[in-house]
Every structure is written in structure tokens, then in C-alpha cells.
Design a protein around this nucleic acid. Structure first.
Length: 410
RNA sequence: CGGGCUGUAGUGUACCGGUAACACGCUUGCAUGGGGUGCAAGAGAUUUAGAGGGUUCGACUCCCUCCAGCCCGACCA
């Protein structure tokens, strides 16, 4: 990608009022554009990050047998009424111009929809277990959207639903999801703590959240400094400096961001929507269900909160929009174009700063703001050595690399 | 939803009860060429200062209402 053609631009100053790092850097860098409070456009750079995150999630979901589907965002009232979730505060209601009252809600979670679909396909224990997920925009009328991508009215979410013939089978899958989630967050460069939490309107039982420690987080958790056992303050009897229930280690209170949540739903939804199966003995039983969410856009914001410095973002390589930022100085465009083409041919994801008339300082500043893992600088000076200068965003030092061996190093 | 703060050019800001200014960005030209470079010329708010109303001879400025944004709280699936 050539920077001169990128549909976005960088701003020299952070937007006024925004205080969270993710809001400041993502808007300044042109990754996202804020249309309203809690409502964002993902511009090319931001959308590439989203794509990287989505791909990691897909791979891990597919590994545990999840099948990707895509459900409607317009959710009929009758689905939500069946489970008593039509009249909830966060729901947006949708009414056609010709209709007197709202007939749809904008999907804020899809348990009802998928359960209804499943009821058409599941008859026997032989049809179970089964799991499906989607990556889709969710809509929630947040009373207070805040902190950039961390809490929005409209956000990207992966929601996985699983269906089982027994509680035990569901819990087995539940722990597989836990493992998959750990891999996802790890691959995205985040340290997430598996945390015991409340179920809200999803379920009466306890659930588990994946919490990333950050000062801008809205949640408070207690984490054992020894075994990493964690509980959400909402339900915890622990307090700061108390001893861990599991290992006796010291517990610390931390602010954190909830990047994922898994729910053992049991039969709440399958009973409401009459999803039953016939067992081996010919008995009719309610299907046991679980649901599992990851907020992709929130994950992206969290990654910025965790990985940045005063100059800009420091993307983990796995979710960086590009791997390499190529800067050309001294008008060495001909050589620059060659290198760019060479990298493209080798399949290296490269953002080429081909802007003429921009000074070196501006290009370096933007390189730091964008936060791509590797910065390459090609100039008269480096060309004398038949080299290009390489600097990693997360390191201070630079090194000269021979042009002939550049693709090997990348 | 309660509390606080803020709305002036694309962005960030300033001034003043007397008819909108500065920096950056943008356009053009010349110079420059390793950390937001220098000089010059220009466009851009102008039935104008988020919208509406009021006070006043006169309002961007004072007052009211609404709207929007941010922060704190409540809520948070």
C-alpha cells in the first residue's frame, strides 16, 4: 500500500477532549473516524487490524469445531419476547416508517436467533454437540459510550454458541473455549486473566471473563499474584492484599478491561424456545447451551492501551495492519520503488511512505504513530553501503541491512 | 440518567460587549533533504462563532433553552 493513496490522514495533535490512548492514537493515525460518541468508522488501516484479529479468532474457533455463520442484525420482536429480553435498556428498537411500533431490535446478542435455527436442525442426540459463531456488528444503546473503542454503541463482536446433550459435555466444551480464548488473546499480544464473574441477564450462574489489566479499564478484579486466580469485584469476597482462595498467595486489586466473556447458559434459552432432542433412550430433553463472546473492536482498543508509548502505537506483529513501514529519503525514489516492489513480490505487507515533499521528520513521526513493527529507511547514506536501515518499533536501536538480504531478514 | 467541563476554519487554540485572529494542515512557487525544514504568495469560518431565543444601539463575548463531545458517577449483557 502506498501511503500517498491511503484514504485517511494523520493529525499532528490529538483530538481535544479524548483522554484514552486508544482514542487519541487511533484517531490521530487515521485508523478510525469517530462519527458519533461510541460510533466509529474503521478506515483502511483500522479495518486491516480488525481483519487480522478476526482471522486469528476464526482460526482458533475453527480449531475447536466452530462453524462460521452470519445472522441478521434485525432481530424480530417475537424472538426476544420468547425469552423476556425484548424490554431491555440497551436495546435499540427499529420501526419501519410505515409501522406504528417497533418490530425489530438491532441485534445486541443472538442466543434467541441461533436457538430457533437450531431447533429446526436438531432432533436427536446424534445431532449434538454442535457449535457455530459469527463475527458481526452488535448494537447496544450504552448510556455512556467512552474511552474510544472500549465501550461503543456499535461494536464488532464474535459470538459463539454451543449446543450439547448434557451439562458435562457443555462444560468440556467450555474449557476448550477457555483454551482457545487464551490462545487468541496471547496471539493478539494480550495477557488476559480468566476471571470468575456474574452472569447479568444472560444467566443466573457464574460466568467467566477474560480481563486485561489496564488503568483505563472499567472493571475491577482481584488477581492472585502467585497462581493468577482472579475474581471480578462484583461478586468477589476478596479484597486487596487478602490471601488467594486457591493457593494462599497475595491478592492484588487491579483495574481491567473485559475482552471476552463465556457463559454456561444451561437450558434457559432452549426451554424458552423449545429446543429439545431425543436421547439414546428415546427421552426428550432440553438441549444444554453455552455462549462465548469476544469484542473485536474492544480488543483492538485494548491492544493500543497496552502497547503504546508517548509517540504512538506499538502494534503486536500479529495484528499490525502492515509489517513494514518503508521510508525513502534523499529522493531515492527509483531505488525505493524497486525495494517496495521486491517486498510486495515476496509477500511482505508493506506500507510505503511515498509522499513527496514531506520531510524526514514528518515521516519518522508518522512511522512512530502508526506503530508498524519494522521501519525501513532507504537514503543516499544507506545506499552507499548497499543497505537499508532497519529499526523495530519496540526497540531503540537501528541496524544496516544489505539490500540483497533484506527479504531473508523479513 | 445525575454531576462537572467544553463547543470559534480541516485540526489545535486566542482575543474582545464595537463586527473574527494565530499555528498547523491545504494550494502555488523557490530553496532544502535523517526527526513535524526555510522563504514567499494564496484559498479557507464571513446571511459567521454547535442550534434557537433573550438582554443590548450593537453579542462569538452576557443570560436562557436545546443539541453535541469529553470526564466522574449510576448502569454495563
Amino acid at each position: 500500500m502506498k501511503l500517498s493513496q491511503l484514504f485517511s490522514r494523520t493529525e499532528r495533535q490529538a483530538p481535544k477532549d479524548e483522554t484514552s490512548a486508544n482514542a487519541q492514537f487511533l484517531e490521530r493515525g487515521g485508523f478510525v473516524y469517530k462519527n458519533n460518541s461510541g460510533i466509529y468508522t474503521f478506515l483502511p488501516l483500522g479495518w486491516r487490524v480488525m481483519g487480522k484479529i478476526a482471522q486469528i479468532i476464526r482460526e482458533e474457533m475453527n480449531t475447536i469445531g466452530g462453524q462460521e455463520i452470519f445472522m441478521p442484525a434485525l432481530v424480530d420482536k417475537r424472538y426476544m419476547e420468547a425469552t423476556g429480553r425484548w424490554d431491555v435498556d440497551v436495546a435499540f428498537e427499529v420501526r419501519g416508517k410505515k409501522e406504528k411500533e417497533a418490530r425489530f431490535t438491532l441485534g445486541w446478542s443472538h442466543e434467541e436467533i441461533i436457538t430457533e435455527i437450531a431447533s429446526k436442525f436438531i432432533n436427536s442426540y446424534k445431532d449434538l454437540p454442535f457449535s457455530a459463531y459469527q463475527i458481526q456488528t452488535k448494537f447496544r444503546d450504552e448510556p455512556r459510550a467512552k474511552s474510544g473503542l472500549l465501550r461503543g454503541k456499535e461494536f464488532m463482536m464474535k459470538d459463539l454458541y454451543s449446543f450439547h446433550s448434557s451439562e458435562g459435555d457443555m462444560m468440556n466444551f467450555y474449557s476448550e473455549v477457555r483454551t482457545a480464548y487464551n490462545k487468541i488473546f496471547e496471539r493478539c499480544g494480550l495477557k488476559a486473566f480468566y476471571t470468575l464473574a456474574a452472569g447479568g441477564v444472560f444467566t443466573a450462574s457464574t460466568t467467566n471473563e477474560f480481563q486485561v489489566i489496564s488503568s483505563v479499564g472499567e472493571d475491577t478484579i482481584f488477581v492472585c499474584t502467585q497462581c493468577e486466580y482472579a475474581e471480578n469485584k462484583e461478586i468477589s469476597s476478596l479484597k486487596n492484599e487478602s490471601l488467594c482462595l486457591k493457593c494462599g498467595g497475595k491478592v492484588k486489586e487491579e483495574k481491567s478491561i473485559e475482552v471476552g466473556n463465556i457463559f454456561p447458559l444451561g437450558t434457559k434459552y432452549t426451554e424458552a424456545l423449545h429446543l429439545q432432542y431425543v436421547s439414546e433412550r428415546g427421552e426428550k430433553n432440553f438441549v444444554v447451551m453455552g455462549s462465548y463472546g469476544i469484542g473485536l473492536s474492544r480488543l483492538m482498543g485494548t491492544a493500543v492501551e497496552v502497547h503504546h508509548d508517548e509517540k504512538g502505537i506499538i502494534w503486536p506483529e500479529s495484528i499490525a495492519p502492515f509489517k513494514v513501514y518503508l521510508i525513502v529519503l534523499d529522493n531515492e525514489w527509483e531505488k525505493g520503488n524497486q525495494i517496495y516492489q521486491k517486498l510486495l513480490d515476496k509477500g511482505v505487507e508493506v506500507l510505503y511512505d511515498d509522499r513527496e515533499g514531506k520531510t524526514a521528520g514528518e515521516k519518522f513521526a508518522d512511522a512512530d504513530l502508526f506503530g508498524l513493527p519494522i521501519r525501513l529507511v532507504l537514503s543516499a547514506k544507506t545506499l552507499k553501503e548497499k543497505s537499508v536501515e532497519l529499526k523495530r518499533r519496540n526497540q531503540g536501536k537501528t541496524e544496516l541491512v544489505k539490500l540483497s538480504s533484506i527479504e531473508k531478514i523479513l
